[in-house]
């Protein structure tokens, strides 16, 4: 399998979270091709809402930075992982930054799905994804439901499925590898 991991950790030093992802990557590498993007260390900008990607240069972003590498990898992956510590009750701004820019992979035209308006596909296939998160000290059940539901919405928008949410204090690396490859 081709697996992409988007690491939205905001800490510069080697945090527990990034160490966990490193272990996870090693485990994946035994049998799969893995690409890890350390978002904080990359040259990435926020979406400016210019819509060049929809009506000037269809499918391409106007911002010239490292994001294009990520777009290419994700749309050609079999699976991808949004990885981030929760901060202020949600995944990090670094992860949201790249998530916003994934609209480059969709088409502006609107269609009806689930009796709602959504954008149609630009590509044939979109990979499913999982979430690997680290809880905050005050994270409660409500927070986890909110995050889960918002990513379910992302899955509808992105024509794919959210396969799992795993927490680094709770789930073993082997579980993530198993679910990524078998479900």
């Amino acid at each position: 399998m081709n697996i992409v991991i988007l690491n939205g950790d905001l800490k510069h030093e080697k945090s527990n979270f990034s160490k966990y992802l490193e272990e996870l990557t090693k485990e994946f590498q035994l049998n799969h091709r893995v690409q890890v993007f350390p978002l904080k260390e990359m040259n990435l900008h926020y979406c400016t809402g210019c819509w060049s990607c929809w009506w000037k240069t269809p499918g391409r972003c106007a911002i010239n930075d490292d994001a294009e590498e990520i777009f290419k990898s994700i749309i050609n992956a079999d699976f991808f992982i949004f990885a981030s510590p929760l901060i202020a009750g949600f995944t990090s701004s670094e992860l949201k930054k790249i998530t916003d820019r994934l609209i480059v992979l969709l088409h502006p035209y609107i269609e009806i799905r689930n009796e709602e308006f959504h954008h149609r596909k630009r590509y044939e296939n979109y990979p499913d994804f999982g979430l690997v998160l680290e809880k905050e000290t005050d994270t409660d059940k409500e927070d986890l439901e909110i995050v889960s539901d918002i990513y379910d919405r992302f899955a509808i928008n992105f024509h794919c499925k959210k396969k799992f949410i795993k927490y680094i204090d709770h789930h073993k690396i082997e579980d993530i590898v198993y679910e990524t490859c078998n479900i």
Binding site: K56, R60, L105, P108
Partner: peptide
Amino acid sequence: LTNFYWNSNLKKNNAFRNRFDKPFSK
């Protein structure tokens, strides 16, 4: 007609014929 907003902007930018481009497909 439902794509009027998008199409008029695509045409304005001379990008209408490229609207289904898939630049990152293998």
